[in-house]
Design a protein around this nucleic acid. Structure first.
Lengths: 358, 358
DNA sequence: TTGTAAGCGTTATCAC
DNA sequence: GTGATAACGCTTACAA
C-alpha cells in the first residue's frame, strides 16, 4: 500500500540509475559512504577549512574509493558559475594567435578555469555565432581578437554582463578594453625607418584588409606616415593577398615585370610574405638591400636565419594572452583593473633594409 | 499566518531573482510569454516537428523578444549530454597539432559540439590532469595525441565510458583506436630512400624521445631500416633537441667539427630542424646534396621555397582532425565505425637529397 | 499536439 | 561544524 504512492517515483529513480549504467557515482553516494550530508561533501571541496579535519579525511577517502569528482554541469547550475572562459581568434593557422591561446589557457588553468576556443576564420558572422554559443555555455569572460566585429557581438556580451577584452590590437580611443599593441604605430615605425633611409617609392604586400581592423590599422599607419612626408603608395604597388611566401613571390614578380618606376622598398604584412619577397628577389637577381629594401612582421625564427636577415618587428603574443587572462580574472574577482594594456612591438633591425638605391 | 510557512521560500526566490540582476531570462519566462508550457518550449528547440507551426512561431518570437537561449548547464544536467568533446595535444606551437585542432573543431561544430582544448606541454602528468578536468566537464568524447600517456589516463576514459581516439600516430597493433599515420613506416621510407642513394653513414637530429611515442617510432623506423642493411647510427651522430632551426644548426656544426668519419646524410625530425641544418651547411660551405643529403618532415611552405628545396614528407593533419571527429561522432551515434583509420605520409622528393658522396 | 511535474548533480541558506 | 532541503534551468516520461 505505501508503495502505491511511490511506484512512479521508484520507477523513475530506477530509470535514472539504469541510464547511468556505468559506475559513475554522484555526490550523494560519497556523502552516504562517508556518513555525512551532501552539504558537507560540497564544503570539503569548496570551503575546506569550514570542515573538521576528521570529516574531511573521511569524505576524501570516500570520494577516492568511489572515483568521484564533482560534475561541472551540476556545479554550474547550482553556483551560477561555469568556470569557463572563451576566446575567439581568426585562425589557429597563424602562430601569433595560437600562442595567444596558449598564454590565456595557461593563466586560466592556474585558476581552474577552462578556456573554450572558437575560430572565426576571419568571418564576422562566424565570430558572432561562436560568441552566442559561448554565451549559452555560460562563459564568465571572453577575449576576442580585434574589434572589427558585428555590433551585436559586443551588444550580446554587454547584455549578458560578460566581461571581455579585445586582444592583439590596442587603440587608445577604443570603446573596448584592449590588450595588445598599436598596429598603426608599429607600421608607422617601419615606414619611418625606411623613409629615414631615403626611400621614396614604396610597395605594400599585406593580408586582406576586409573585416580586419589590425591590417587596416597597419595600412593606415603606412599611409599616414608617408603622407606626412608628402608621399604615397601608388595603387599598382598595393597588394592584398594570403599570408604565404607564394603571395610575396607573385607580388614582387608583378612589380618587377611592370613598366614604370619601381619601388625601392617593400613593406610586408608579415614575415611569411616578406620571406617570399626575399626568395623571389634572389630568383630575379635583385640585390637586397642594395636595390630593394624589405620588411616583415612577427619575427619568425627564419627571419633571423635567412640571408639577408629580415628586418621585422617582434610582439610577445603569448604575453598578450596571459595579460588578457589576468585582466579578466581580476575583473571577475571584482578588482577594477586598469582599462586595457598596451604591449609593444619591438623593431628588429637586420640586413634586408638599407639606404635607398639612387 | 499562512505567510509564516512561506517566508523562507519567498525570500529565497527573491534572492535568486536578485542575484540574476541582469535581464537574463530563462525558459519558463519564454513559456509564460508565449503562453505555453516549459515542455513545449523545450520541444521547439529539441524536437521541432513535434510542435505545431503556430505554437513554434509564438515560442520563437517570445525567445527573441526576451533574448533567450538555452542554458547549457541546465541542458547538460537534464539530458545527461554535455555536447562537449575534448582534445589533448602537446602544444599549439606546432602547426601540425594546431591544424588537427582546427579540423576537429570544424567537424564537431557542424554537429553542435563544442571542442575543449588541453595542452600537455609534452608532460604526461599534465595530460592526465587535463583529461580529468574534461571528464568533470562531462566530455562525451576525447582525442589524445599519441599513446605515450599514463595508464590512468586511458583507464579513466574507459571507466567513464568516454569514447576516445589516439591521433597523429597510427599503429596496427595498438590497443587503442588510432587515427593518424605510421611514424615508423614514414621514417623507414626516408631511410630507404637514402640507402638507395648509396648512403652508409647517417646522422639523426630529432626532437626529444622522452614521453613521445611518435618520435620514438621514428627513431625505431630509422634504426630498424638501417639494421636491415647492416648499418647503424653512431652514438655521436645521434642528436636530440628542440624543434628549432637553431638545434639543427648547432648539431651540424658539432658533427662537422668532430674528428672521425662524417655522415653523408642527416635525417631530421622535422622541417624546422632540417632548415637549420641547410642554413648551417650554407654557412660552412657544405654542398647539398653533393657532400651531404638532408631530409625533413612536415613539408612547411619554406621547404619547397628554400634552395636547395628540402626533401621531406607531408601529412594532412587537418584531415586527421576531421577523421577523428567523424569517428567519435559515429561512435556517439551508436554506429560501429571501423577501428581506426590510417592516413599516409607522402614523400616529397626534392633537391636536398642525392647520391652519397664518395 | 500539449501540459504536468519529477529529476539531473550540485550549491547555498538556514537551523541546529 | 554539520545537516535538511530548496533552488539552479532544463528535459522527459507520462498523462491528457
Amino acid at each position: 500500500m505505501p508503495d502505491s504512492l511511490d511506484p512512479p517515483a521508484a520507477a523513475r529513480t530506477q530509470t535514472n540509475r539504469a541510464r547511468r549504467s556505468t559506475g559513475r557515482s554522484v555526490l550523494s553516494d560519497v556523502a552516504k559512504l562517508a556518513g555525512v550530508s551532501t552539504a558537507t561533501v560540497s564544503r570539503v571541496y569548496n570551503e575546506p577549512d569550514k570542515v573538521s579535519a576528521n570529516v574531511r579525511e573521511r569524505v576524501e577517502h570516500a570520494a577516492l574509493t568511489l572515483n568521484w569528482f564533482p560534475n561541472a554541469a551540476g556545479r554550474a547550475l547550482a553556483s551560477t558559475r561555469s568556470h569557463i572562459a572563451g576566446i575567439i581568434i581568426p585562425t589557429l593557422d597563424d602562430r601569433v594567435f595560437a600562442s595567444q591561446v596558449s598564454g590565456m589557457q595557461a593563466a586560466f588553468a592556474a585558476r581552474g578555469i577552462t578556456l573554450v576556443l572558437g575560430c572565426s576564420n576571419y568571418d564576422p558572422a562566424q565570430a558572432l555565432t561562436q560568441v552566442r554559443a559561448m554565451l549559452a555555455r555560460g562563459v564568465e569572460a571572453m577575449a576576442v581578437v580585434g574589434e572589427a566585429h558585428p555590433a551585436e557581438l559586443f551588444d550580446a556580451l554587454r547584455l549578458y554582463r560578460v566581461p571581455y577584452a579585445v586582444t592583439y590590437a590596442y587603440r587608445k580611443d577604443s570603446p573596448h578594453t584592449c590588450i595588445g599593441f598599436d598596429n598603426h604605430a608599429a607600421y608607422a615605425e617601419i615606414t619611418e625607418h625606411l623613409i629615414g633611409l631615403g626611400h621614396r617609392a614604396f610597395a605594400v604586400c599585406i593580408q586582406p584588409t576586409r573585416d580586419n581592423d589590425r591590417v587596416q590599422a597597419r595600412v593606415a599607419g603606412i599611409r599616414a606616415t608617408l603622407e606626412r612626408h608628402g608621399l604615397a603608395v601608388r595603387p599598382e604597388h598595393m597588394f592584398e593577398g594570403e599570408s604565404t611566401m607564394g603571395f610575396g613571390r607573385r607580388s614582387l614578380r608583378t612589380i618587377w615585370q611592370a613598366s614604370g618606376e619601381r619601388p625601392t622598398a617593400i613593406i610586408c604584412g608579415n614575415d611569411h610574405i616578406a620571406l617570399g619577397v626575399l626568395r623571389e628577389a634572389e630568383e630575379l637577381g635583385i640585390a637586397i638591400p642594395g636595390e630593394l629594401s624589405v620588411t616583415g612582421f612577427d619575427d619568425l625564427e627564419m627571419a633571423q636565419e635567412i640571408r639577408p636577415a629580415l628586418t621585422t618587428m617582434r610582439v610577445d603574443t603569448y604575453e598578450i594572452g596571459q595579460l588578457a587572462a589576468q585582466y579578466l580574472l581580476d575583473t571577475l574577482d571584482g578588482k577594477r583593473p586598469l582599462h586595457g594594456h598596451e604591449v609593444h612591438a619591438l623593431f628588429q633591425l637586420r640586413q634586408s633594409t638599407g639606404p635607398a638605391a639612387r
